[in-house]
Amino acid sequence: MTVFEVVKASLVEVVPDVDPASVTAGRTLSDLGCTSIDRAEVVTLAMERLGIVVPISEFRDVNDLDRIVELLRTHM
């Protein structure tokens, strides 16, 4: 699984009514119906699945999928 796929799978799990086909590069989490708490949950789940730790302060204001993927990659 790529980092993007891990984030996508986490997002679909946290927000069950999102259409998986709509989770594509370039989208923001708020576009996809995520609250800020959903975002924290998506990032935490993705970190756990990837076995990495990103400090909370680094993802606090990150809202688009591409930047989340990039941030996770820098900690791998």
């Binding site: 708490i37 924290a40 949950e41 990032v43 935490t44 970190m47 756990e48």
Partner: peptide
């Protein structure tokens, strides 16, 4: 693994 505490824990 404290970093994986579910993000909704406080709720």
């Amino acid at each position: 693994r404290p970093a994986y505490l579910p993000a909704r824990f406080a709720l």
